[in-house]
Simulated scan of single mutants.
Amino acid sequence: MFPAIGLFGVFFCVFGGYIIFGGKIGIIVEALPKEVMIIGGSAVASFLIANSSHVIKKSMADIKRIFGGARFHKKEYMELLSLLYQILKTMKTKGVLAIEQHIEKPMESNIFNAYPSIMKDPFTIKFIADYLRMFSIGVDNPHEMESLMEQEIEKAKHEDLHSSHALQTMADAMPALGIVAAVLGVIKTMASINEPPEVLGKLIGGALVGTFMGIFLSYCIVAPIASRLKAITEEEMQFYMVIQAAITAHLAGYAPQVSIEAARKKVPSDYMPDFNELEEALSAIS
């Protein structure tokens, strides 16, 4: 909701303010299609040149994420902590072999399927299953496991930030593309130097629209989108750091309740359940 309000506010404040203070919107409206074609078209074309097909497709799909925000909220974190507690408790009381069938086929596991919010994210399922599988085959050094998990989280973060980086690069180029459009407008104006002042004034005003649109599209539209995508990615990576904290604490020899408490501390403050709330949820797990 807030991104939509923000976009509306940007257009209202910029163009509304221009009109309120006596600006002639007709000059902008008349020049807008040509300037947008030069700036927007060349920006998109440069974007296609600079990025792989995978990044281009992902960027287009990711733009809608600014309206939905991060995928993980308090409900998802509660389910994740409950799932991890159930797995760690089973390992502690029945041994590693008791969870082998669950980590080999997590999509068929009654433990995993008890948490539908977690099942919606294949990477989370794979992440948990892979590292529990490594533990089952003998990787039991908590520092080694923590390092391996951290490397995979960093890789996932790096790949997820491709869209943000690509859009930020495009935003950085747009003011210069606005200057290109303005220079073309000046060239057109100089070709009409014999025209009366009112005509020249209109042509110069149209040329300056190019500079304005380059800056406006960059700093008011594309750059905020890139920044928002980066913030969403960084927020979502906390979800996997919760898993990392729980598993490494278990490998260090802590009881399931202590391991989950260590993981709870990794939950973003906005979504972190308090100790009693989580304790009540875990006590319901058989």
Rank of each mutant, 00 (worst) to 15 (best):
T233D: 01
E195T: 04
F15R: 07
G185L: 10
A4Y: 01
F239A: 08
F21I: 02
M119W: 01
M60L: 11
I260F: 05
L282W: 13
A176T: 06
A191P: 05
L184D: 02
I187R: 06
A4K: 00
K230P: 00
E279P: 00
K230V: 01
K230C: 03
F239H: 14
F239T: 08
N194L: 04
H54L: 01
I20E: 06
T233G: 02
I247L: 12
M241E: 05
F21G: 03
I179M: 13
M213G: 01
S269P: 00
G205I: 13
S227Q: 09
S117E: 15
F123C: 00
G95R: 05
S147V: 10
S164D: 09
R264C: 10
S269L: 08
F47N: 04
K265C: 04
M145L: 15
I232T: 15
D172G: 07
D270Y: 10
G16P: 08
E234H: 04
R228S: 11
V180D: 00
P273Y: 10
E261R: 06
I153P: 07
E235P: 01
G9D: 00
H158V: 00
H165K: 13
F212N: 07
E159P: 05
P3I: 11
I56D: 04
I28D: 09
A173N: 11
I179Y: 01
A176C: 08
L282F: 15
L208G: 03
A246M: 07
K126V: 10
D274H: 04
Y18K: 05
S164V: 09
R228W: 03
A98H: 03
L48H: 10
K75N: 03
I87N: 00
S286M: 13
I204L: 15
A255C: 03
H73W: 09
V199L: 15
I27E: 12
F216T: 08
G138L: 15
G206R: 15
K266F: 13
G253M: 08
L282P: 14
I128Y: 00
M134C: 04
K188W: 10
N113W: 05
L132V: 08
F127S: 14
K57W: 02
E104I: 08
K94I: 14
P142S: 07
K202I: 14
I99Q: 08
P3F: 14
T189F: 04
A4V: 03
I232R: 13
I153N: 05
V222F: 11
L282Y: 14
D62S: 09
P142Y: 02
A281D: 06
K94E: 15
Y271G: 02
I153H: 02
V258N: 12
P175D: 06
I39W: 15
C13D: 01
M134A: 08
E150V: 04
L251N: 04
M149H: 02
S109Y: 05
T233C: 04
K64L: 12
L251W: 03
Q257F: 08
E104Y: 07
I27H: 13
L184Q: 05
